[in-house]
Nucleic acid binder design. Structure first.
Lengths: 142, 142
DNA sequence: CTGTACCTTGACCCTGGGGCAAGGTGTAGC
DNA sequence: GCTACACCTTGCCCCAGGGTCAAGGTACAG
């Protein structure tokens, strides 16, 4: 029985996503009502590929599968999705800013730790890494 | 039978880590040979608390449990840990720099997407979000 | 007919724990 | 002693976003 439409592997190759990822999207409800062949193969049409491109784009800018699912549901119901998408983008931008700030602080901390790691410990003459090794008694460590 | 030493909950409170986390550390081999009471309760001494503080510190600067385990093993074997720790820190700093660059690019992309989301689509007069909604035919979406 | 390339579902693995359940234990009050 | 309650034990499932492997069915070329 010849297959009309794209199998999951073909769709994966065209979109640039793994077949496993596509099955995951379907199982999470992002890609409902995928046609099946008599033997159970998924058969994707151009509409499905469009949705998959959408998902890939949305994933690439950090949206989660649940968020993407919500946007897709809005689209399917004929709603305007711009407001929702912009809100999601704003949330993600804000979170990225927080993450950036955290990473900068972490980077500074790591640099300090790196510098401190070379200093000598006065307690017992051993060279230890101050920033990290705070209170491990030598009795049980060495 | 009165318990001599800190139970997992007491240790957790003193260190500022969840009891569940402490059990995880033990199960991953970061905290070997924890003493047990006759009834099976974990009993932590000051040495254990020192190791737990070490783990908390190391976790706070982004080291993974496996990495921390390696450093602890070096310490237990009497090795100098500074070199290893510095190498780990360098790895993490480099990865943070990569992540920072990625996040900056992502932030820029999101800002572009946000701006583009407000523009109108010429195809069918509907206002859609260009950056994301690329090719989903209206036939099946709306 | 056979080879092999692809498909299916299912289950387990990763991080670093969170949360829950069933049952044992420590301790205090009465 | 009995009870109440907090805390402990182990074990299992859950989170994101899949990766990887297994057992078995299917499409297609030669």
């Amino acid at each position: 029985m010849p297959l009309s439409g794209y199998t999951v592997g073909q769709a994966a190759k065209r979109i640039g996503v793994s077949a496993k990822a596509i099955r995951l999207y379907e199982s999470r409800g992002l890609l409902p009502d995928v046609r099946r062949s008599e033997s159970g193969y998924r058969l994707f049409d151009e509409t499905d590929l469009g949705i998959l491109r959408f998902i890939r784009q949305a994933r690439s800018i950090g949206l989660g599968l649940d968020e993407i699912k919500d946007v897709l549901a809005l689209q399917r119901s004929g709603q305007q999705t711009c407001g929702r998408v912009v809100a999601l983008l704003d949330d993600h931008i804000a979170e990225i800013d927080r993450t950036l700030a955290d990473l900068y602080a972490l980077r500074a901390t790591l640099n300090d730790a790196r510098a401190a790691a070379f200093s000598e410990d006065g307690r017992d003459g051993a060279v230890v890494c101050h920033m990290i090794e705070t209170d491990i008694p030598r009795s049980r460590v060495g």
